[in-house]
Deep mutational scan, measured.
Amino acid sequence: QIFVKTLTGKTITLEVEPSDTIENVKAKIQDKEGIPPDQQRLIFAGKQLEDGRTLSDYNIQKESTLHLVL
């Protein structure tokens, strides 16, 4: 699982696999929060994550925290 922290300070927990794409993660966030993926920007280690890449591409491991910017 990974954590996604929103600007409001809320933390969302997501069940993911390293092979999941960023697009996939955004879809999971939409399921939980109702935020359309095209409004979501995910930041990890100061980098904006691209939809077509996977979590493992960015070396995002379990218990990692991503930041969600709208």
Rank of each mutant, 00 (worst) to 15 (best):
Q1N: 11
Q1G: 05
I2S: 01
F3C: 06
F3I: 07
F3D: 03
F3G: 03
F3N: 06
V4Q: 00
V4P: 01
V4A: 03
V4H: 01
V4T: 01
K5H: 10
K5I: 15
K5A: 07
K5N: 06
T6L: 15
T6I: 13
T6V: 10
L7Q: 14
L7C: 15
L7N: 14
T8E: 14
T8R: 09
G9P: 02
G9Q: 04
K10M: 10
K10R: 12
K10Q: 09
T11Y: 10
T11W: 08
T11F: 10
T11A: 05
I12A: 02
I12W: 05
I12G: 00
I12S: 02
T13A: 09
L14Y: 02
L14S: 01
L14W: 01
E15T: 12
E15S: 12
E15P: 06
V16N: 02
V16Y: 14
V16F: 15
E17P: 03
E17W: 10
E17Y: 11
E17H: 10
E17F: 10
E17T: 10
E17M: 10
P18I: 12
P18K: 06
P18D: 10
P18H: 07
P18A: 10
S19K: 08
S19I: 07
S19V: 06
S19W: 11
D20E: 10
D20T: 09
D20V: 04
D20K: 02
T21S: 08
T21P: 05
I22A: 02
I22Y: 01
I22P: 02
I22V: 10
E23C: 14
E23Q: 13
E23K: 12
E23F: 14
N24C: 14
V25N: 00
V25L: 11
K26I: 03
K26F: 03
K26M: 05
K26R: 05
K26N: 01
K26H: 02
A27K: 15
A27M: 15
A27E: 10
A27I: 14
K28Q: 11
K28V: 04
K28R: 08
I29L: 07
Q30E: 10
Q30G: 07
D31W: 08
D31S: 11
D31G: 09
D31L: 14
D31T: 10
K32R: 09
K32N: 05
K32A: 13
E33P: 01
E33V: 14
G34I: 02
G34S: 06
G34P: 03
G34F: 04
I35Q: 03
I35K: 02
I35P: 04
I35V: 08
I35A: 04
I35S: 04
I35F: 11
I35W: 12
P36V: 05
P36F: 06
P36L: 07
P36H: 11
P37V: 14
P37N: 07
P37C: 11
P37L: 14
P37T: 14
Q39G: 06
Q39E: 09
Q40C: 08
Q40F: 15
R41P: 01
R41L: 12
R41S: 10
R41G: 06
R41I: 15
L42M: 03
I43D: 05
I43E: 10
F44E: 02
F44Q: 03
F44V: 04
F44S: 04
F44D: 02
A45E: 14
A45D: 14
A45K: 14
G46A: 04
G46E: 06
K47G: 07
K47F: 10
K47A: 11
K47N: 12
K47Q: 15
Q48V: 15
L49D: 00
L49Y: 00
E50M: 10
E50D: 09
E50W: 05
E50Q: 09
E50S: 07
G52Y: 10
G52P: 07
G52C: 12
R53L: 12
R53D: 05
R53F: 12
T54A: 06
T54Q: 06
T54M: 10
T54D: 03
T54S: 09
L55H: 00
L55G: 01
L55W: 03
L55S: 01
S56Q: 15
S56C: 08
S56R: 10
S56K: 11
D57P: 00
D57C: 04
D57H: 11
Y58E: 03
N59V: 04
N59I: 04
N59G: 14
N59M: 07
N59L: 07
I60R: 00
Q61G: 12
Q61I: 13
Q61K: 12
Q61D: 09
Q61P: 13
K62L: 15
K62G: 15
K62T: 15
E63W: 09
E63S: 10
E63P: 03
E63N: 13
S64M: 11
S64F: 08
S64C: 09
T65L: 10
T65M: 10
L66A: 02
L66M: 05
H67G: 05
H67C: 15
H67D: 10
L68G: 01
V69N: 06
V69W: 09
V69T: 10
V69M: 13
L70Y: 10
L70T: 12
L70N: 09
